[in-house]
């Protein structure tokens, strides 16, 4: 293992600026990950040409792969930077922002569209209120396990970045927000509003925009079986469409 790791970082000074590359060397240490390397650059933001530059801008919080913040494109693949171990990836390491989303600066992107999509699919249980109402319903433990799996989605955006149908050419809201509809339809109280969510998915940008490319399931850092649930939702949406048609 060499004592330095080379990073080639695609930078951009602002939302409407032109991207450019800069290269940095970071001291190797065992267990080094991409976020830790970016932190080292913060301490000494000097490029390989010896130029002192502003430190690289990116987003991170938990560094444990649960918050979803540090998603970026590493060696061409969308993933969380905190668990991208330098030992396990090809060098030099290329970092780019996930350009499916508007770039704010450097690797920092604006993913607010994903949270807006969660409004469209009505991603919540219609609670009467946060007060006490006797007991909560018993739930089938197997269904609850499926819900637990889907509920790991951290809105990181890997699946949107990887999906060929998310982008300027399409209005697809993307795999992550779509599959969240399935989560709420599983819940004993949430399923009361399943028709609303399915109807929302019939609209523009809904499930018919999914081209079944299967890319999403490949990149999901939480290994959520996105394509399985997309297929199930597709069936549910079709059933709902028939129900709407025959008014039953």
């Amino acid at each position: 293992m060499p004592d330095k790791v080379r990073f080639i970082i695609e930078r951009q000074d602002g939302p409407n600026e032109k991207p450019y590359n800069q290269e940095f060397d970071v001291d190797y240490r065992p267990g080094l990950n991409v976020v830790a390397a970016l932190m080292e650059i913060q301490k000494n933001p000097v490029t390989v040409d010896g130029k002192r530059v502003p430190p690289v801008t990116w987003e991170c919080n938990c560094l444990e792969k649960v918050c979803g913040a540090c998603m970026m494109v590493i060696n061409g693949r969308a993933r969380q930077a905190c668990c991208a171990l330098v030992d396990e990836i090809k060098k030099p390491i290329h970092l780019q922002p996930a350009r499916t989303f508007p770039v704010i600066r450097d690797l920092l992107i604006d993913r607010s569209v994903m949270f807006e999509s969660l409004k469209k699919i009505q991603g919540w249980v219609e609670l009467d209120g946060s007060w006490d109402v006797k007991d909560a319903p018993i739930q089938n433990p197997y269904t609850a396990q499926t819900a637990y799996e889907i509920s790991h989605c951290m809105t990181c955006g890997c699946c949107l970045e990887a999906c060929p149908n998310v982008g300027p050419q399409s209005d697809f809201i993307g795999p992550a927000p779509t599959v969240q509809a399935y989560l709420f339809n599983l819940h004993p109280l949430g399923k009361f509003d399943a028709p609303k969510r399915l109807n929302a998915l019939m609209e523009k940008g809904g499930i018919t925009s999914c081209g079944n490319s299967q890319n999403c399931v490949e990149v999901c850092p939480k290994s959520i079986k996105l394509t399985t649930y997309l297929a199930q939702l597709n069936r549910d949406v079709n059933k709902q469409a028939l129900k709407n048609m025959f008014n039953f």
């Binding site: 609850a144 396990q145 819900a147 109280l189």
Partner: peptide, 14 residues
């Protein structure tokens, strides 16, 4: 119980 109603996928018994 409120969290359960909100949809927190707590681990459940058989």
């Amino acid at each position: 119980k409120m969290f359960d109603r909100m949809g927190v996928p707590f681990t459940r018994t058989s």
